[in-house]
């Protein structure tokens, strides 16, 4: 089942509205959050898989093809 963008919101700075199981920067479960302010999410916060990310001038959108999650900038 696909999550709507409202299910998991990741801010431009990297914080999420709900607990992340995996770091969106490095994709590990152990990391406290290494993604910088200037990186779009690279890994799925739910499963750690590499995301397919589209960056546009005013934001970004990303999808995980493993767990069917979609997230986007606010």
């Amino acid at each position: 089942m696909s999550s709507s963008p409202e299910d998991v919101r990741v801010s431009q700075q990297g914080a999420t509205d709900h607990a992340e199981a995996f770091c969106t920067g490095c994709g590990t479960a152990e990391c406290g959050g290494c993604r910088s302010d200037y990186d779009a999410p690279r890994h799925c916060p739910r499963c750690g898989h590499l995301l397919r990310t589209k960056v546009h001038p005013a934001g970004w959108a990303a999808e995980c093809r493993r767990c069917d999650l979609e997230i986007r900038s606010p």
């Binding site: 302010d37 200037y38 779009a40 960056v55 546009h56 001038p57 005013a58 934001g59 970004w60």
Partner: peptide
């Protein structure tokens, strides 16, 4: 270049 880059983010416009 204003806004984001190709795969990384810029500061706000």
């Amino acid at each position: 270049i204003i806004g984001n880059y190709l795969t990384t983010l810029g500061r706000s416009p």
